[in-house]
Design a protein around this nucleic acid. Structure first.
Length: 417
RNA sequence: GGAGGUGUCGCAUAGUGGUCAAUUGCACAUGCUUGGAAAGCAUGAGCCUCACGGCUUCGCAGGUUCGAAUCCUGUCACCUCCGCCA
């Protein structure tokens, strides 16, 4: 969410952000109208309340002196009350509409974000390592892993439907080792490891900016909660409604959790193997910082480096991509994806995603801190993937495969299996 | 799933229909004071308005009333007991 004053003063900027992020810019004008309606109706209600308060104060003074309220005073009070009964619901309705529109305002992209319609506008800003070379034709991970008894998709699909999978034997052990390794690196960097609720209420998803835009991609329970697609939701919402101290910041958290995604609208994509699944496991990094974009950028960079250091340790080739406006979320100011090399597909595929939001999420979640000068400000939030499996597991399997269909596991990982 | 209890401005507390924007203690921050500190004193939320000023607060949402922290209903969270269970 943005500051309404900021929206009023920078209308064109927000409209441009809508266009650049492939959203309908009409919502901005609708919001400004709703804002005006809200303020004028607020005035109407405030005036009535003022009349009522004045009257009540009079009566109170009388009662304190032992006099009873007069009949005409009570009649006047009743009349004000009747008017309020008409005007207050109007205000509520206007406010509800205003709130809804406020939640739809996108965050303008940061400076330097390439403008583009879709993934074709993304810019590769760094490439590390060379695509893995083989003196044989590399196999696709599903063949490789199924042959080794690491993976069973056929039986899983009978049970859980399309995009289900069993990991077995060393396949599971390698998955767990990768997650564990990611956690180890983050703990060393001062992050607090956390398990998180993955079943959450709607406010957490609205607060993190997944809703309203991404509602269709979430599973909902019959009790109304949602399954989260990332630990970012619970970690970012961790201090919802709290006012922290500047001394508490930065807060560095990492969460290990299962992740659920409906993957609506991806029916033709990645139908082979387990690159795109409905349920996977992930270690996620989340940081709260002071309200300063330079500081937030610094942390964003460090969090990307942490993820990179893991890929380097694993010997996986990757590139870092600056995501264009059309390919980033409505709430994000900057998004870098890390794409890892997948030999069988002969291309780099997204394995990590690092974004920062300034106070966009903190406003929605109401997470503030008291600064050194005594003023309260919203924290700034940043998140990044550390390890997502099975996607990274697949990258390992494909990049580490040998001619005879085996998978060579590096020493640093072996000791965790 | 059944029965009962609790929920006050960071923490802890007072307050059962009318000066309660809310008591008291502690903590934290800022300012004054100081050579510096301690102590002491003062200040401390949000919204609308250029401003004067106004409106909002007692888990949340409704209701009763001229008037609600206080009464009623619903709801959420926590606690205790019973049942079930990893």
């Amino acid at each position: 969410m943005l500051d309404i004053n900021y929206i009023r003063d920078n209308t064109d900027l927000i409209k441009q952000a809508c266009l650049d992020k492939q959203l309908d810019a009409k919502v901005v004008d609708l919001l400004l109208k709703a804002d005006e309606a809200r303020r004028s109706q607020q005035l109407v209600v405030d005036n009535l309340r003022q009349q009522s308060n004045t009257l009540v104060d009079q009566i109170k003074t009388q009662v304190a002196q032992g006099q009873k309220p007069q009949a005409d005073q009570i009649a006047q009070g009743k009349q004000i009350k009747d008017q309020l009964k008409i005007e207050e619901p109007k205000l509520t309705q206007i406010q509800t509409n205003y709130q809804k529109l406020m939640l739809e305002m996108p965050n303008p992209p940061a400076q330097g974000v390439p403008v583009g319609k879709d993934e074709s506008g993304n810019q590769v800003i760094k490439t590390v390592g060379e695509p893995t070379k083989f003196d044989f034709t590399p196999q696709a991970h599903q063949t490789l892993m199924e042959n080794l008894g690491w993976l069973d998709v056929k039986r899983a699909v009978k049970i859980g439907g399309f995009r289900s999978y069993f990991l077995k034997g060393d396949g599971l052990l390698l998955e767990q080792a990768l997650l564990k390794y990611g956690l180890k690196l983050l703990i060393k960097a001062g992050f607090t490891p956390m398990s998180v609720p993955v079943l959450v209420g709607e406010p957490a998803l609205e607060g993190t900016g997944f809703f309203p835009w991404g509602k269709a991609d979430h599973y909902q329970t019959q009790d109304g909660q949602f399954l989260t697609g990332t630990a970012e939701v619970a970690l970012t919402a961790y201090c919802t409604g709290e006012t922290l101290s500047y001394k508490d910041l930065p807060i560095k958290m990492c969460g290990l959790s299962p992740c659920f995604r409906r993957e609506v609208g991806t029916y033709g994509k990645d139908t082979q193997g387990i690159i795109r699944v409905h349920q996977f496991n992930k270690v996620e990094q989340v940081v709260y910082t002071i309200a300063d974009e330079a500081e937030t950028k610094k942390w964003h960079g460090q969090m990307v480096e942490l993820a990179e250091s893991m890929l380097v340790d694993l010997g996986l080739p990757y590139q870092v991509v600056n995501m264009c406006t059309g390919d980033m979320g409505a709430g994000q100011r900057l998004k870098f994806d890390i794409e890892t090399w997948f030999p069988a597909q002969n291309k780099y595929r997204e394995t990590h995603s690092a974004s920062y939001f300034n106070d966009f999420q903190a406003r929605r979640l109401n997470i503030k801190y008291r600064d050194q000068d005594g003023t309260t400000k919203y924290v700034y939030t940043i998140n990044n993937t550390m390890v997502a499996t099975p996607r990274l597991l697949v990258a390992c399997a494909e990049n580490w495969q040998t001619k005879d269909g085996q998978i060579k596991i590096p020493g640093i990982i072996q000791e965790l299996m």
